[in-house]
Design a protein around this nucleic acid. Structure first.
Lengths: 322, 322
DNA sequence: ATAGTTAATTCAAACGTTTCAATAAACTTT
DNA sequence: AAAGTTTATTGAAACGTTTGAATTAACTAT
């Protein structure tokens, strides 16, 4: 790989001159500029990003750290982030490793958006600094260099509860996901609080736990239907995948959705509307979610302070399953 | 951010000693090792990846460059790659920029898998080298440092054609995508060749062009149905999204799928089986696709030569739409 | 002609690592 | 106790950039 040095030799100028040309300084005369650019082109020169970053002590790449690549859930959020990133002349990389997090630790990126429960708060506290800010999407953390964006989980569940109550449901169950998910637990809390506020009791055995996957929803619900004699007339699920799995379990038992049991999901993933029956759910505006996260991150990076918005629009969507 | 120097000072040893400790050299005595590690921990030291890469002239990150993040299409492929990458102790980053490709040019990664039509062959030829190998998934390119993996597009289409013929169809149309897609064009060619080989004529006007999105499929088919008086009894689409769009157009016109017109897609995206009617399609084993790509890349990086497999399993899946 | 100014170019140090070569310290041999 | 060997530690250069300061060249104004 040709370096500045090679280009310099070929163009018969100093390394600094080449550097200035490459970076578009206008101190350089037109003649030299041309000469250098030509040499660079001839050699197929491209700057070495690692050297650049090392010297400048910054990286114009921002990292998005996810727990995994499963599911169509994040595609829209990615778009929201990508747009902002491009506006700022940065690049975005998406990374989903479970253990090493080398990219984060070794500071290849200039900042990060984190939606990855494998990365713990301690690590974030150690790494975050004025020059290395983060935005976290799935947790609460108290650090001056880390911004958090919380989803309106409770409002979403509240709307679902109200919808079901209005439909005449009084005994409502809840399908929770794994406890490591911050958002998931907020949804569960939101459910319990909403029910209580509306004077409805929720029996502990109507709260069942799966792990956010469709298959876990199916299996857990199957188990539940086996044990219990009487069921709630409706379930709210902490996400759409589990709701879909649970619905299949109910149908396999020969019961009707929504007639025998109604279901409401959360997230409004893409297949939700194609599912049979089409799934009622709470839509989170994911593109906006991503955009807000990115804007906040750039505020930290650039030490500006324009974007204080932290609420993400949600909307209850009524379909056939409830 | 603390550096080796800071740790060295704190532990009262030289920088080299710290470096050796951090990298687990066994030349260092137990006592010093402990002392150094303690100091590193106290300071919250993490190595600087840019400095490391610069010095070692290599990066243990591999990059996956996509044209965009749209669609659930790649999730499985990502998994296939990620698995291999982890086996090799590397990290993977996914990147989908349309213009700069800085990550690729500036060599943040130690190798790349490319499925991005925004990146042109010229750039790849300039960048690729013994130390910087690529695997391309969506094109043919002749370069000793670039490996290519071609999808069995033609076989897939052939199976679709045979299926439709067996079902009694004789006049079959084709919905092509944008011409920039290598795989898309191969599918079109495969269609034309298969039809010809089987002695069936395909009229140019039964080949319509959209751009791979669902909405383009819908609009183009709508237009087609307006102009023509008589239609093929079946269409093969270069991907599932366009097939779904086209089916909607047909249904909106009051016709039945598959009775009036049958459809076969390609890719077997996740929603294909939930669609109404469930979509017949050609499944590409994407996880394997990703795994093979990653294996080949590591072969190049490690200069081993074990994985010569380049064929990706496909399978025709018959559902309700045909 | 000389000093003063501006424009163009170069020098050299630094960023945080790695690693070869050199040194120092601690043991073995004789 | 001298020479040799092993073990542990350090010195210093290098990777490819950037950038403030220094230098040189080319003009302007006196």
């Amino acid at each position: 790989m040709p370096t500045l040095k090679d280009v310099a030799k070929k163009a018969n100028v100093s390394i600094s001159t080449v550097s200035y040309v490459i970076n578009g300084s206008k101190l350089i005369s037109k003649g030299t500029r041309e000469k250098v650019l030509q040499a660079a082109r001839d050699l197929g020169y491209h700057p070495n990003g690692n050297a650049k970053n090392l010297k400048k002590n910054k990286s114009e790449i921002i990292g998005l750290f996810l727990s995994g690549f499963k599911g169509p859930f994040f595609n829209e959020m990615l778009e929201g982030i990508q747009n902002e990133v491009e506006k700022n002349g940065y690049e975005m990389v998406v990374c989903a490793s479970a253990d090493m997090h080398r990219l984060l630790k070794e500071r290849y990126v200039g900042g990060a958006i984190i939606l990855n429960y494998h990365i713990d708060n301690d690590l974030l506290h150690v790494l975050a600094s004025e020059k290395y800010p983060f935005v976290v999407l799935d947790r609460e953390i108290d650090n001056p260099h880390i911004e958090q964006i919380l989803l309106p989980n409770k409002q979403g569940i509240e709307q679902s509860v109200d919808h079901l109550i209005q439909r005449g449901h009084r005994r409502i169950g809840f399908i929770a996901g794994g406890q490591q998910s911050f958002d998931g637990e907020k949804r569960l809390e939101g459910f319990q609080e909403s029910m209580e506020q509306r004077g409805l009791v929720v029996s502990p055995k109507d709260i069942i736990r799966a792990d956010f996957t469709e298959v876990s929803g199916l299996l857990t619900m199957k188990e539940y239907l086996k044990q219990e004699a009487d069921y709630p007339t409706a379930f709210i699920s902490a996400n759409d995948e589990m709701a879909m799995g649970a619905i299949k379990a109910v149908q396999q038992k020969g019961m009707q959705v929504p007639n025998d049991i109604a279901f409401v999901g959360f997230d409004n993933i893409e297949i939700a509307k194609y599912f049979q029956p089409a799934l009622s759910t709470v839509q989170v505006n994911q593109k906006e979610w991503g955009a807000v996260a990115a804007k906040m991150l750039f505020d930290k990076i650039n030490k500006t302070d324009f974007n204080k918005q932290t609420s993400i629009p949600i909307e209850f969507i009524e379909r056939e399953s409830s």
